[in-house]
């Protein structure tokens, strides 16, 4: 019989310190969605193949379905719910809307988290850079065209705005 005893984990999620109880076998994704009600991160596969559950763990892009919940003790998490602090859409989110870069939208949270991670690391990616980086995220609806354009357009707009730098991506 698997271990059912719950552990107490303290972590920072979207800037707030949070303590939760979990079983060692629970994934981070399960805890986010089922215990903490942060259902913006989606489960498309549960085994690291679709990117719908992408979150940032200490600034690094990870699949929450591949992280066990106890692993986040003392660490810092950003989920899709934390991308637009204070409710103002970021430029990236705005560009997704303008470019119609979503159809059903189930992949969108993962793509936005992943694209943010890309732009944080590489503010002026080429089309190939974007495609390579986003190859871990599956979208079955869009054919990726408008997603790639939205990300490239965000990068271009951020570059153009560099004279008055703001934290927007």
């Amino acid at each position: 019989m698997p271990e059912r005893k719950k552990r107490m984990i303290t972590t920072t999620i979207n800037g707030e310190e949070i303590t939760f109880l979990c079983e060692p076998r629970q994934t981070l994704l399960e805890v986010l969605r089922d215990e903490l009600g942060l259902t913006g991160s989606k489960e498309g596969c549960g085994n690291g193949n679709c990117g719908a559950c992408n979150v940032l763990l200490d600034g690094v892009l990870v699949n929450a379905c591949l992280v066990l919940a106890p692993e986040v003790e003392g660490r810092e998490l950003v989920t899709i719910e934390g991308i637009a602090p204070g409710g103002e859409l970021t430029l990236l989110q705005q560009k997704f809307l303008e470019h119609a870069a979503l159809q059903c939208g189930i992949c969108t949270p993962g793509f936005i988290v992943a694209a943010k991670a890309l732009l944080d690391e590489n503010p002026s990616p080429t089309e190939h850079d974007v495609r390579l980086w986003l190859a871990g995220n599956l979208c079955r609806c869009t054919g990726y065209d408008k997603i790639v354009r939205a990300v490239l357009d965000t990068a271009a707009a951020l570059q153009a705005a560099q004279t008055t730098p703001t934290e927007v991506a």
Binding site: R33, D34, G37, L38, T39, G40, S41, K42, E43, T79, I80, E81, I83, A84, L89, Q93, F96, L97, E98, A100, L102, G105, I106, T108, P109, I112
Partner: peptide, 23 residues
Amino acid sequence: TRPIRPDGVDKVTGRALYGADVR
């Protein structure tokens, strides 16, 4: 024309509720 879809903001912020999000 190409307006923003009505459900767009909810879908880029993770607020849109899909079937698995029912609690």
